[in-house]
Design a protein around this nucleic acid. Structure first.
Length: 486
DNA sequence: ATGTGC
């Protein structure tokens, strides 16, 4: 029997089994690469640098098992967006490019007890009020002006709750309970702190958005019930990151690593993968600064949650508690974390890098909060603003296949520049409203063009692969009602 | 993604 292969331009992938493809280990690769995708999705990454970047990643010291590209992978800075790498936390390294510029870019889902027919007719008022109360776009704008950055960096959502921007239960429904105690504000540059000070509580630009959605499909009744999701329910999705703060932290440490660890850099195939050796002072410093940026991003999403609750109170004229606007979960899409994983029958501490990938721990994993320990964690995968999103549950196979991870979105099909040549923002908004009853309000028409539904892959296909592999199980699907963007 | 560059 001949082995099935896939010819992806410069690379030939070998099929391991359905939806699992291997980039064979050769030359100086330390491990093989793996792509988790259907053939349709594979075809969409043959013309960009995704596979080259996946291959480059396998050169990182201490990389375990294989470098992984998720079904939604596309090219990024150094390392694919939609990439996962587990690097030995003792003898390996940590790489800012494999975390991403937008540290802890992520998404949270806020539930309500409202049904779609209760908000129908209020879409325009809702979208205008959200747009007026949630700062969007490039540059400044904040829910909290001149914010106490040091406290936010140290305590994350805990700070926000103490200040009245949330409630105790928000903490239990956020990855890492809303803050990383390893955060070290002393390792963050003044420049980063200055940029963050007036951006606490702001959506930003690009693919970031706040979207009101309705639940349209339930695929797994028992899990949906545990998650508090039901047909026709209104939910809110908040997608944003650490703004200029995280960007500055990434920039600072890339430069610092290039200066301090030139020897390691010379051994790597790409300068964009610059890494600090595990155990070095710089690795510790970056980890502390990255954790601070993670806390900043969680606080950012918490402050936007606060604004959202207030807007709903005004539009629907009742307290948010009465509308049961509780968090389902807040998941990170761009992080590295010390986690213990089984590698060839041995427990090993790794820096798990997830860049454009979501943690997808199954039931039983000790990091999960009590609410989800027996069912598995919610995983939130946004599609484009025309497609809606999915809620999944961390799958049983994620620990053995992907260091406990799955996809994070639909994945881009084309560059932003290309998108602006293909689409005009106003037309995209008109089409969405007229054809799909989706109300979009944005700071910039160019951003809408960059994010037009047609620039994204088919999120249904991405999620189908995750479900088939058992790394993230499909629980529910949502469809957009209204959306605000930068 | 980003006070839209190296």
């Amino acid at each position: 029997m001949t082995e099935k292969t896939f010819d992806a331009g410069d690379f030939t992938l070998k099929q391991v089994r359905e939806y699992v493809w291997e980039l064979p280990q050769e030359d100086d690769m330390r491990v093989p690469g793996r792509v988790l995708a259907s053939e349709t999705l594979l075809e969409e990454i043959t013309d960009d640098k995704s596979l080259q970047q996946l291959r480059d990643t396998t050169h990182l010291p201490g990389i375990q098992k294989y470098a992984i590209a998720m079904p939604d992978a596309h090219q990024g800075y150094g390392f694919p967006v939609g990439g996962v790498a587990g690097l030995d936390a003792e003898n390996g390294c940590i790489s800012p490019g494999a975390v991403g510029y937008d540290i802890n870019c992520g998404v949270r889902m806020l539930k309500t007890n409202l049904k779609y027919d209760e908000i129908k007719g209020h879409e325009a008022e809702l979208v205008n009020s959200l747009f007026a109360n949630v700062p969007t776009g490039l540059g400044g704008g904040a829910v909290v002006d001149n914010a106490p950055v040091e406290e936010i960096l140290e305590r994350g959502v805990q700070w926000a709750v103490e200040e009245g921007y949330g409630v105790e239960s928000d903490l239990a429904h956020c990855e890492d309970e809303g803050f990383r105690p390893e955060a070290d504000p002393a390792k963050v540059s003044q420049k980063a702190k200055d940029r963050g000070r007036n951006q606490a509580g702001s959506l930003g630009s690009g693919n970031h958005f706040l979207e009101v959605q309705r639940v349209t499909d339930i695929y797994h009744d028992d899990v949906a019930r545990e998650f508090g999701l039901s047909d026709d329910q209104i939910v809110v999705l908040i997608h944003c990151g650490s703004r200029g703060f995280g960007h500055q932290v990434c920039t600072d440490y890339l430069r610092e690593i290039e200066q301090t660890h030139q020897g390691l850099l010379d051994e790597l195939p790409s300068k964009e993968l610059a890494a600090a050796p595990a155990g070095s002072q710089l690795a510790e410093d970056y980890y502390g600064a990255m954790c601070a940026a993670i806390n900043f991003a969680w606080t950012n999403r918490q402050l936007i949650t606060h604004q959202t609750r207030q807007v709903f109170e005004r539009v629907f004229d009742r307290p948010w508690e009465e509308m049961e606007m509780e968090l389902l979960y807040d998941v990170s899409h761009n992080i590295a974390k010390r986690e213990v994983h089984d590698v060839d029958g041995e427990d090993k501490e790794l820096f798990v890098h997830r860049k454009g990938a979501t943690r997808a721990f199954p039931a039983g994993r000790q990091e999960l909060p009590p609410a989800y320990r027996d069912v598995g964690q919610p995983v939130i995968i946004p599609g484009s603003m025309g497609a809606g999103s999915y809620v999944l549950r961390g799958g049983e196979n994620s620990l053995s296949e992907t260091f406990g991870s799955t996809a994070h979105g639909a994945g881009r099909l084309m560059s932003r520049t290309q998108a602006k040549n293909e689409y005009w923002g106003e037309d995209v908004m008109d089409d969405l409203r007229e054809d799909n009853e989706i109300y979009v309000k944005a700071e910039s028409g160019a951003t809408v063009a960059e994010e037009a539904p047609g620039v994204y892959k088919d999120v249904d296909e991405v999620v189908a692969v995750s479900d088939a592999l058992g790394i993230g199980d499909t629980v529910a699907r949502t469809y957009p009602v209204c959306n605000i963007k930068g």
